[in-house]
Design a protein around this nucleic acid. Structure first.
Lengths: 342, 342
DNA sequence: CTGAAAGCGCTTACAG
DNA sequence: CTGAAAGCGCTTACAG
């Protein structure tokens, strides 16, 4: 390894027989420094391969230009797209991103949050884990004066900036589409009702049925079917009923819908004629299955950008307090073969 | 917003009528401090909701416990899995991860690297962008005394720790499999030969043909077919030849293979009987297409863990210089329907 | 076991 | 326009 000792502003100052103050000013492009010496300083800095020590700078300035992101899983399409969207915006503002994944564990989520507080990040962006009902760790973020932005899966009771999907409306339209296609016994695979997103999707489902005077049948509503395996299991049960459903809405994810499709196919049900299948999230694979799966696109990357922009917007008017508010992105129904029988 | 002023070790010291030195020692669990006072300090710290200022601590200690990661795209399955693997390990060691994406742009890659150097990260992990042939920015990392680990797409000439796939061997086995299945005119869709991975895959292809005394036919080798669109375009050309290939190896990615499949199907070629298709990366969708696509699994998450472990291993024996070396992970051929005609 | 002091590298109000 | 000095919050060798 080459020398670990890095050049500091003092090295530059010494070489040019000036003070570190001037060097610092030049490097920060202050105009309280002579144009000539500024040029000289910049030149010397380049020669000595100077890199600012951001730690020291941040410590002094009391801000880190860093945003922390906590998501359940980095390698899940929706989240990695949101992160990509955030990154795009923060990068252009010279901000850094620290990424943590909770792995759907409440305990790890708390640890991630604490690590980010320790890091003195300027903002924390989070989508909470499936686990957990106590959100005092989020309140703690706010108590430390750190901007908190929740997205997608949010804790309703913690008042912050929120960027969410209009899950209820999207679901309402999706179910209406099923009804338009002539489906009459529509089953719902629901996720843990502790999470806002799953409650809202259920709500949309109920409202759509109601609007069309279709009775809600309890045995067609299956709890906790939020993975491919659980979706498959639920489908096995549903399709074995004396009066099986003629459509299944996997409200939790496309993975769950995939489980539905596989079981339905193996049980000999024709999709979409005998069974309609509807997923959620527009995972890339949904257009590759046969038949392709109707689903709901969440504009994930756009959500990421929205989140980042929201932060920068807020941080610009420093003096005024942040008014907790919710930005709702309207998801889009993507109709494909699995529900098209007309 | 609540008070921005956070409690420091001085606040704790003042309250207990001791010095910050002792507080610091207690917080760092030093045993040069009385057990009783240590307990008292910890208790008080908790009461005051004290969070260490990691910036100050790092500045003083000269290490940040942070690893920077630069990948072409965060939201690409392979990379997000590698990141997830790295995260899992670094998290357990209380390290932070700063993530950047180059978006395949050489210029942005350089900016990311510089930002990470500024941040004084302890280690930089990178998979280089498609663009670019000059890797002096990587040398710069080393010159700053920062551990550099390259993975998957590496700059051969920069001597560092490297974690790669044995692309050549994997390809060799894949092509051998095609030959075993009776395919005789095997086309190659290759990626930019500036990247090691694509050179190695081509090498494996050539060696396998050679071994089986199958002539290499230039018109069956298509340059720069590394996206779905380019794969599709190449396939249109190949299948229109007077003597079209009976198999296509999309060495660049499964996305390219998907392009092949779609064009082949639309042109009326039967897969796998009339045309075999082989991809690379084992993207989740490859088992969902019809027919499912034979591909090569890169153990991406495992690679991530390997990278992180490598760093911690090296950082433990500080005094000895790091010996540049390469860890080669053996990818695995996943045989599916698109090449199974026996 | 505990304290006083220096210093990590920078920024910035205060003088001039 | 430039310098001297203080301070961000912590850690750690040096005394005692």
């Amino acid at each position: 390894m080459k020398p670990k000792k890095r050049t500091t502003i003092y090295d530059i100052a010494e070489k040019l027989n000036i003070t570190a103050s001037s060097v610092s000013r030049a490097l920060n492009n202050s105009n309280h420094v002579n144009e000539e010496t500024k040029k000289l300083i910049l030149k010397t800095a380049a020669e000595l391969n100077y890199k600012r020590n951001v730690l020291a700078s941040n410590l002094r300035k009391g801000q880190t230009k860093t945003i922390g992101v906590v998501v359940p899983r980095i390698n899940q399409n929706f989240f990695s797209n949101v992160i990509a969207g955030i990154e795009e915006t923060t990068y252009s503002k010279n901000f850094n991103l620290i990424i943590c994944q909770s792995n759907e564990s409440h305990e790890k989520e708390i640890k991630c949050i604490n690590a980010l507080i320790n890091q003195h990040v300027d903002c924390i962006v989070i989508s909470v884990a499936i686990e957990g009902t106590d959100y005092s760790h989020l309140q703690n973020v706010i108590d430390h004066g750190i901007q908190l932005i929740q997205f997608d899966r949010v804790a309703d009771e913690i008042e912050t900036l929120k960027v969410i999907n209009d899950n209820e409306q999207a679901t309402f339209e999706a179910i209406t589409h099923l009804i338009d296609q002539g489906y009459k016994r529509i089953a719902l695979l629901e996720g843990p009702q502790t999470l806002n997103i799953f409650r809202q999707r259920k709500e949309g489902y109920l409202k759509a049925l109601n609007k069309h005077k279709i009775p809600v049948i309890d045995e067609l509503i299956i709890e906790n079917a939020w993975t491919k395996e659980l979706g498959a299991e639920a489908t096995r049960k549903l399709l074995s009923l004396p009066e099986p459903p003629d459509a299944i809405f996997a409200s939790t994810s496309d993975f769950s819908a995939l489980g539905v499709l596989e079981v339905a196919t193996s049980m000999g049900f024709k999709v979409p004629t005998e069974l309609g299948i509807l997923g959620y999230a527009n995972e890339p694979f949904t257009e590759l299955t046969s038949p392709s799966i109707t689903t709901i696109d969440q504009f994930s990357q756009y959500m990421g950008k929205t989140i980042a922009n929201l932060y920068f917007q807020e941080s610009e008017n420093k003096d005024t307090t942040v008014v907790p508010r919710t930005i709702s992105v309207k998801p889009k129904l993507i109709v494909r073969a699995s529900t098209s029988r007309k």
